[in-house]
C-alpha cells in the first residue's frame, strides 16, 4: 500500500537501471496529487520519459515501488486495466494510421466492452471537447494537420474517462502558434476535467504555464519540486540556470500566469 492517501501516484525510492548498467533513475521519490498538473522538467536524458513510463508500466522499476491509487499493479489483467484507466499522449501521437479518427478515439471504450450506442456519442463528445469538427470523424490520420492529429491523440486518451493522464511532450512537435493554441485549450480543459496529469517537457514556458507544480529533474534525480511562482524566485543553482537560459525567451503568457 502507498503511504499518502491524497496522492494519485507515488514514487517510493524508485530506481531504473538499463541492462547495460546505465542508471536512468536513481532513488526517486515523488507524490502526484489528485487533480494537479505536475510537470516533469529537465533536459533530454534526465529521466523524464522513463518516469512517465513507470506509471503505466511500459517499464518496470529495477527497485522501489510506483503506486497508482495506492496500489502497485500486478501482472496480466491488472496491468491492462491500469493502462486503460490512464490516458497516454506522446509527442509522435501514435494514431493508428489504418483507423479513422472515430475508430482511433473509440478503441479503448470498444475493448473495454462499452456498447456501441454509448461509444458513438462519446466520440462526438470527445471531438467537441478537443475542438474538432465532428465532420472529421471519418477522416484518416494522414488527412489531418499536425495540430488536429494531436487533438485526436488527446481525445483518444480521454475517451474512456481515465482519472490519470500521462503526457510526454505532447505539443513538442507543433509549430509555435498551434502549440500556444493547444496549451491554452489544455488549461481550460483541465479546469473543467480536473484530471491528475503528469506532463513531461523541456520547455520552461510550457512548464510555467501549465503546471501546478514543477519537478526539475537532472541525471535521473529529482532536483527540486516547486510551484511556478517559487520556481522563478528560486535561488537553487540549477533552477536559476534554467531560468537564465530561457531569459528573454520567457514568454509573456508564462510570466502573467506567475504574477
Amino acid at each position: 500500500m502507498g503511504q499518502n492517501r491524497g496522492a494519485a501516484i507515488e514514487f517510493r525510492d524508485v530506481s531504473f537501471v538499463l541492462p547495460d548498467g546505465h542508471v536512468v533513475l536513481s532513488h526517486f521519490d515523488l507524490d502526484i496529487r489528485r487533480g494537479e498538473t505536475l510537470v516533469l522538467l529537465g533536459r533530454s536524458g534526465s529521466g523524464k520519459t522513463t518516469t512517465l513510463k513507470l506509471v503505466n508500466r511500459l517499464l518496470a522499476p529495477t527497485s522501489g515501488s510506483v503506486y497508482v491509487d495506492g496500489a502497485v499493479p500486478a501482472h496480466g489483467k491488472d496491468l491492462l486495466r491500469l493502462r486503460r484507466r490512464i490516458g497516454y499522449v506522446i509527442q509522435e501521437v501514435g494514431l493508428f494510421p489504418h483507423f479513422t479518427v472515430e475508430k482511433n478515439i473509440g478503441l479503448v471504450p470498444a475493448i473495454e466492452g462499452w456498447p456501441q450506442d454509448r461509444i458513438r456519442p462519446r466520440i462526438q463528445q470527445m471531438l467537441q471537447l478537443v475542438g474538432l469538427d465532428s465532420g472529421l470523424a471519418d477522416r484518416y490520420p494522414h488527412q489531418l494537420s499536425g495540430g488536429q492529429r494531436q487533438r485526436v491523440g488527446v481525445a483518444r486518451a480521454l475517451a474512456a474517462d481515465p482519472e490519470i493522464l500521462l503526457m510526454d511532450e505532447p505539443f513538442g512537435a507543433l509549430d509555435p502558434l498551434t502549440r500556444d493554441e493547444l496549451q491554452r485549450e489544455f488549461l481550460s480543459l483541465q479546469q473543467r476535467l480536473c484530471k491528475t496529469v503528469l506532463f513531461v517537457t523541456h520547455d520552461l514556458n510550457e512548464a510555467l504555464r501549465l503546471g501546478s507544480r514543477i519537478a526539475l529533474m537532472e541525471a535521473g534525480k529529482l532536483v527540486t519540486l516547486l510551484s511556478p511562482e517559487e520556481f522563478l524566485r528560486s535561488e537553487d543553482a540549477l533552477v536559476s540556470a534554467y531560468v537564465r537560459a530561457f531569459g528573454a525567451g520567457l514568454d509573456a503568457a508564462a510570466q502573467r500566469r506567475v504574477q
Partner: peptide, 15 residues
Amino acid sequence: VDPAVVEAARGMGLT
C-alpha cells in the same frame, strides 16, 4: 510498423 504506434497501443492497454 511505426514504433510510436506500437507504444501508444501498449500504453492504451491493448493485449
